[in-house]
Structure formats: structure tokens, C-alpha cells
């Protein structure tokens, strides 16, 4: 497994700029906490191999 080089602050700044959304300095620590926690939680899903045949369950009825 490769070393985790994720830089949460750099990611947040780049993504916020791409989305044109302001993150005030005093909110930043809490947003970063949430971002890091969300990334940790998401790993449980991302690390689980799924067959190619598994599709999202959302159904769109035209």
C-alpha cells in the first residue's frame, strides 16, 4: 500500500477555488476536521472491491 500523502488543507483550498466558494479562516479548522473524517469513513466503501456488474440503485423513470 502506498504512503498516504493527502494534504487536506491544500485539497480544501483547491476545491473551494474550483467551486468558487469562500471558506472563512475561522471556519477552516472545523471544515478540515469534517473533510478528514469524511475521507476516513469513505475509505470503508472505497476499499471494498465490487463486481463490474453492480450498478447504482437509483432508478430514473423517463
Amino acid at each position: 500500500m502506498s504512503q498516504d500523502t493527502f494534504d487536506a488543507e491544500a485539497y480544501l483550498e483547491a476545491t473551494a477555488a474550483a467551486m468558487n466558494i469562500a471558506i472563512a479562516p475561522d471556519w477552516k479548522p472545523a471544515v478540515l476536521d469534517n473533510l478528514i473524517r469524511s475521507r476516513q469513513i469513505a475509505q470503508a466503501v472505497l476499499n471494498f472491491p465490487l463486481p463490474d456488474t453492480v450498478e447504482p440503485a437509483s432508478v430514473f423513470k423517463p
Binding site: I21, V31, L32, N34, A42, L46
Partner: peptide, 15 residues
């Protein structure tokens, strides 16, 4: 705000 920043790949995989 943190949710807004997550990669779309993660959402697709979660679904």
C-alpha cells in the same frame, strides 16, 4: 462545506 468538496467518485462508489 466538507461534503461539497468530496470527489464524485466517492458518491458513485457509495451508491
Amino acid at each position: 462545506l466538507a461534503g461539497l468538496m468530496l470527489p464524485s467518485d466517492w458518491l458513485a462508489q457509495a451508491h
